[in-house]
Design a binder for these strands. Structure first.
Lengths: 223, 223, 223, 223
DNA sequence: AATGAATGAGGATTCATTCAT
DNA sequence: TATGAATGAATCCTCATTCAT
């Protein structure tokens, strides 16, 4: 909830503020981000920042909401409703990974919301963020079972939970130092994780999810 | 690396410092934790804290290392080497969940290391933390394949990565507000996640992992 | 000295600005009053405020002068020149108290001028405010002595000073938290000071002043 | 309620802080006083100020309480319990005036508490300050009536209220620009109010109070 | 005459760390 | 080894005033 002033200013300025805020919050974290530095990077005055947002918290929340909208557009925007579960999962994972590579700051900010001291933001953001994805995945799974392309003994809620967990950790592995190191340790990758190696792993992950979901006969056909 | 002084003081004081530090860091996060408050909670003087540790960073790192040792003991301590993969996974997940419920501060600190601004700690901790688990899981998987209790088409590294990812997210869901809300959204749990409902979900998760790993015939036998 | 612009605008707007300024200055004090808040309460733009007045100081001064004119009209307006001292004092005290109850903000602003940091305003306002009252009271006292209704041994200047002092403190006791508490402590009033109890005390104050001024024989007659 | 630290530091430093705080608060007022300037004047660091006091408010309150104790000691300290009303009033007014001349900052701070925005301080200080004086004056008046040195038709509470009102305004006239100008206007004093002219007026004020309180016969004897 | 976005100096408060005792 | 007073840079936020429209 930015102040009304924020919608009155030049769109480029608005973009600049949101973008630099995301970059800084994603680099330093909420507590360590300095409003003065943010203002100077966004080429606005400190005072203006407070004309646009009630507080640092409000700014953070606004950036998160903006990030959410953007990522949803980027990941879910191109989906055709008639695509089946597997095509949609493939699309979501690939667009998600591409988005994470192009906008690592947004994924970092997502991860930060699970850190200590960020509960206030989780309370205001998480249900919104996760509810959408959860509903989407569950609907797809249910339809998949109905259509016979998903094993009927799959627990829809748990499967959605697990698929999204893998999604989160995979994206996190593209943007957070900790998860990067971890992924390299697990997948025995020596070099920096570049687009190529990321895609390579992504292929395997998607395949694994499919194999896990498809009914026995279907799987054999695929193999 | 605490200073030598830290090993000379009374063990109860040492415990108190580590415990209160973990609690505070896990509640507030690194940046927001106040050394003065920490000192007062641990009933030592601010000066003493700096007699024991080089800096706030050093203290944080020491607490993390201590936490790692404790959690490893709690989770891997009771494992008999001759247990097979499934028995070990069951043990690890259950002990891990119990540990997370008993010591949420340690899991929270783990999560914090993936947040922005914590890269310095990830660089010093992550490989250690993850390497051990990764090696253990991979060895088990390899042995499992050799013994014919794990599907031979499983990619060992990726499977270890995925199993551990699920483990992390599950524990996170027991201690972090964000992941709690998320889990409740996915698994459609209305009430607080208590020991009972956590175990219930855990059973399903463990079962799902098994089903995913076991060769077709084995799975059919199980069913 | 508002700018000429201020006399060109709609009278209702002029009133609104003066009234809201008085209310806010009287509530927060000069330093703590925010020109932005004032503008929004008066439903004018911040820019307009500076079209009407040179500065915050100028606005404050203007409000004080306006308050002075209003209070003089309210208190001295209804006096007939042929009334004697006692009738006029009675009238002044009662109209003054009524004015204070109806417009506490003006009396509060008067009190504020004696606070630290307000010397600039005292220099510009006090002589004006006090000179008028002093002259009036002294003239009345002199006439009273001449007419034999005031003790001849009364020091006119000091008596005027004391009468007005009592007047000030009494009005202050109707509008300022500090003087309210003080009055309740002295006069042992338990409840809020309402119109009834204020009038009751006022009667006694006026009577006391009369008794103090009247020559011995006159006083006995009165008793 | 300063923090315990404040009682641990060197007494000279403690005095310095209280004294410079009183000076600055009395010069600028609460809102306009800068903690940084105060720290530098008291030759302590800004941080230390916050080791001694919870906040600016706490510091202000502490200075007021200290001022109250000092002024009470200065004014009421030398009184012998067997002195009669008139001797005590004479003593109080003269010591009060001397104290105000020697420590104008304390009287200014008293006046500030009645200004807008200072209600929080009035709530915490006024009853204490005024209760003591009120009780003292009322007891003296009651005793005076009993002893036949005070007119029996005097309303004790109101008389105490009025005497103290005159006391307040008189002291205020020694320290506040506004009340100084006002006094000069009323008493037609052209020059600065120095010790001599102040004492001169004080004599008259005390005499007037006496004349107002003494029974008719006594008064005639006095005259 | 009116608007409201923009500015940046200013001000309260915090906190890691030091050091004399 | 223990203490806790001292420091001052750092940081969030405010606000009088200006000025382009």
């Amino acid at each position: 909830m930015p102040k009304p002033t924020f919608s009155n200013i030049a769109p480029e300025k608005r973009e600049r503020v949101l973008k630099e805020a995301a970059r800084l919050f994603a680099t330093r974290g909420f507590a360590e981000t300095d409003m003065a530095e943010l203002a100077s990077r966004a080429a606005v005055s400190k005072g203006s920042l407070y004309d646009y947002f009630e507080s640092k918290e409000d700014l953070y929340l606004s950036v998160c909401r903006d990030a959410l909208a953007r990522s949803r557009r980027a990941v879910y925007g191109g989906i055709k409703p008639d695509w089946d579960l597997y095509r949609q999962i493939d699309h979501i994972f690939r667009k998600g990974a591409a988005f994470a590579r192009a906008n690592p700051e947004y994924v970092r900010m997502y991860l930060n919301v699970s850190a200590s001291g960020m509960e206030q933001f989780a309370d205001k953001l998480t249900r919104d963020v996760e509810g959408y994805t959860a509903d989407h995945l569950k609907a797809l799974l249910r339809q998949g079972i109905q259509d016979g392309i998903v094993r009927s003994d799959v627990d829809v809620n748990l499967a959605a939970f697990l698929i999204n967990s893998v999604y989160i950790i995979f994206l996190a592995s593209l943007v957070s130092r900790h998860y990067q190191i971890r992924m390299k340790e697990y997948l025995e990758i020596a070099s920096r994780i570049d687009a190529r190696s990321a895609t390579e792993q992504l292929d395997k992950v998607i395949l694994t999810i499919e194999r896990f979901l498809k009914p026995a006969q279907t799987r054999q056909e695929t193999a």
